[in-house]
Nucleic acid binder design. Structure first.
Lengths: 216, 216
DNA sequence: CAGTCTATTCAACAAGCGTTGAATTTGCAA
DNA sequence: TTGCAAATTCAACGCTTGTTGAATAGACTG
């Protein structure tokens, strides 16, 4: 049998750790939780990755480059498409969000879990300081530069605050807490990234314009 | 000496727990961490509150009613001020955010920690389901009703998604991760709720209008 | 000052934790 | 088949965890 998949135990450990860390955070998951989920001995995770913290890092890094490259590629394609004109805010935000939507659309639940893990990291004062600068900063700065070019005359302060709101809206979306499902009585779904993406672009773009038009 | 304060050990436990839970989450904090921080024996927290989970709940509940009442009061005052006309979106969002800004402005670091704890709960799939409906739902529904009245013709789906983005922007603000400080090289500060509030109102209001004008 | 209730500490427990070294199985090349 | 290295399990360690019952100190009342 074993029709589903024949991934290595090593990969199963990463898959399970990804899901559990996203759900319960670093301290809410034990090595035994991971081992049980992966149907594997407790010692195996240590054998492959080292300390518990190294498992967490391995999970985080597994898709980080993939996601970063995808985002960079989409941003550059968007820049190229705009030619010598500056991109519109909508185009920049679309480029910012599209790779996340695409990751979701692969249907691989691993990507869904990874995005939730990213949300966990971004919303945590401790983990955000530890993980984000090293991995995601370079690209974020490029996006902010693009926004600056698209909003001539806007003050840096306004741009950074608007980016912060964008980042917050995105973070809560990636977290997939199920809260919107419950508040809306099922009319909106946390897992429906298409809708989240579709409405987020005009929402954020309008926000940027409204705030930044008041700059000196 | 002891010039600063003469709070009871019981209160010191809550204060320390509040700060630590906000920073590290429920599982990232031990009873001994709390006891050490409060300079108190390990057993005392159990004596006063029961299980670890009960300490968490006690911390959460201590300010929940206070905050809820403040928000309700501000919302009603805003409604009254608008008279028989519907409130503007700006007025509703201001009413939504003002109590949080006021809590911050008391200067009491406890409130700052509590707001960060709220962010931790809102961003967590597990805790958000467990804590939010019971405590904050009734009021949130009132705010959404007000928004519906201020946006005639807007579809529920649009309103809920926009509220979701507002909630996300707010959550990341309350979390005070320090990320905006670092990205902006100190031009913007996570602890500067005045600026966060000031820019968030026009940002979110414009977002609502842009999305909801496309409703059927 | 004796008595009583509350607040606090002390000491200890059983369970669960991450981690490790040795033993065992598996996969593969010679 | 043998040999060897990688993958995996087994068994156990020292430590930390949350929690509890008994002992002590403190506050207040009569």
């Amino acid at each position: 049998m074993n029709t589903a998949k024949s991934v290595s135990k090593r990969d199963r450990i990463l898959d399970v750790a990804e899901e559990l860390f996203a759900l319960h955070g670093f301290d809410g998951v034990t090595m035994r939780d991971i081992a049980n989920g992966a149907q594997v001995d407790v010692a195996l995770a240590s054998y492959h990755f080292g300390k518990k913290r190294d498992v967490f890092d391995a999970v985080f890094m597994r898709r980080a480059d993939l996601l970063n490259n995808s985002r960079r590629k989409v941003l550059y394609a968007s820049k190229e498409k705009a030619g010598n004109k500056p991109q519109t805010i909508e185009q920049i935000i679309e480029a910012f969000l599209l790779p996340l939507k695409l990751a979701q659309e692969t249907g691989d639940p691993g990507w869904r879990h990874y995005l939730a893990l990213l949300a966990y990291i971004m919303a945590s004062p401790v983990w955000s300081k530890e993980m984000m600068p090293h991995i995601y900063d370079k690209l974020v700065i490029e996006f902010i530069d693009a926004l600056r070019a698209a909003l001539p005359g806007a003050s840096d302060e306004h741009i950074y605050w608007c980016y912060h709101y964008l980042s917050g809206a995105l973070t809560l979306t990636l977290a997939q807490t199920g809260r919107i499902d419950q508040l809306s009585n099922g009319k909106c779904l946390s897992t429906d990234f298409d809708s989240a993406y579709e409405h987020m672009v005009p929402f954020v773009a309008a926000g940027f314009r409204a705030v930044c038009k008041n700059s000196d």
